[in-house]
Simulated assay, not measured.
Amino acid sequence: MNKIDFVITWVDSNDPAWQKEFKTYLPQNHCMNDIRTERYRNWDNLRYWFRGVEKFAPWVSKVHFVSCGQAPDWLNLNAPKLHFVKHSDYIPAEYLPTFSSRPIILNLHRIKELSEHFVIFDDDCFLIDKVEPERFFRKGLPCDMAAFNTISPIVPFAPKDYNNLCVINSSFKKHEMLRKNFWKWFSPQAGNKLLRTLFLLSWRNFTGFYSHHLPQGYLKSTLEEVWECHEEVMLRTTASRFRNITDVCPWVLRYWQLAKGNFVPLNVCRDGINILISEISLDKIVKIIERHKKKIICLSENDETPYEEAKEQINAAFQKILPEKSSFEK
């Protein structure tokens, strides 16, 4: 395994042309679509993502920067490791423009230059300390932490979890999978989450999977296989320009790898942390970044996030640990 690529998706919601197109395609009755402001908000910290990759993961083969055609003015499109990918380069024209990350990610296998082994980053996930390739792949397989869970429908868009499970349960037999991959599902790497798996063993079908919100490794062949087996639901999701309750979401790809046993057990939460900014003090977030308390940090937001204040303090912390320009910058 000599090549591991990174993929990051991005949108500049401050772009007037994008805003106009967004309003043009937004359905008049959009109550069934997820169009929350924080899904598109620009934190102006993308340069620190690239600096972190260059400093802490210099082994990466290629970075696929995916957008609708937008790129920040400072981005060096001629950087040796950068592949600038427009949605129109790989998503069929009849499904564009799209304002949902789901078709953008579910169709990544159509990028010809994409390596078989790649890691998907959301643009709110940053490297803040050195990581090795073995953090994402071992023995040619993605590293992941397998544990069962249950669907908790506490938010309006929980149906995506139900839709994902319909795909998985129609393709895999839970207890047959457990017999084949017993030591992967009962690995000490799962830590106290083993209890979830034990308590949910008696259910015949998959009731859910523990999900982390950290960069995840994938096999390109996984996407091709899911499309081959479930083209109808994948096309339906691709046709949704905005998040819709009939969609599957990209986690179905991870669940597929888990159900098939195509992973190596690893406690991915040991060196990574997912923070909901509104639920933790900004001082604590700044310390985690500046003191490199974790290797990977994901900074999630909601409608209660103090956007301007958080943006200023968090970006200042990134600047402190990553002050030098990367080759991805002009």
Rank of each mutant, 00 (worst) to 15 (best):
T207A: 02
P215F: 15
W227C: 05
A190K: 06
H213Y: 01
G217M: 06
R243N: 08
K184Q: 13
L200Q: 12
F199C: 00
N192F: 00
N192Y: 00
F209G: 04
C229P: 06
T197P: 02
W185F: 14
L223G: 12
E228S: 08
P188L: 04
R241Y: 10
R241E: 10
K193V: 00
T197W: 11
S240M: 11
G217D: 02
W203N: 02
G191N: 10
S221T: 04
E231L: 08
K220T: 15
E231T: 09
E225M: 14
E224P: 03
E228K: 15
N192C: 11
P188D: 02
G191F: 13
W183C: 15
R236D: 07
T197H: 14
A239V: 05
L214R: 10
W185D: 13
F242N: 00
K220D: 12
L201D: 12
K180W: 07
L214A: 09
T237R: 01
N244W: 02
C229A: 10
K180E: 15
F199L: 09
W183A: 11
L200C: 01
L201Q: 13
W183T: 15
L223N: 05
S221L: 05
P188I: 11
F209N: 04
L200T: 06
L235C: 04
T222R: 01
K180Y: 13
K193T: 08
K220G: 15
E225G: 08
R241H: 09
T222V: 13
V233G: 08
F182I: 13
E228Y: 06
Y210S: 14
W185M: 08
F186H: 15
T207D: 00
H213A: 06
M234G: 03
C229K: 15
F206P: 07
N244P: 00
A190C: 13
E232M: 10
A239W: 01
Y218A: 02
L194T: 01
T237A: 08
S240F: 07
L195W: 13
T207H: 01
T238C: 09
K184E: 08
A190Y: 00
V233R: 07
L201K: 13
H212N: 08
K220S: 14
L201N: 15
W203I: 03
W227A: 01
W183N: 11
G208S: 03
H212S: 08
S240P: 07
E225Q: 11
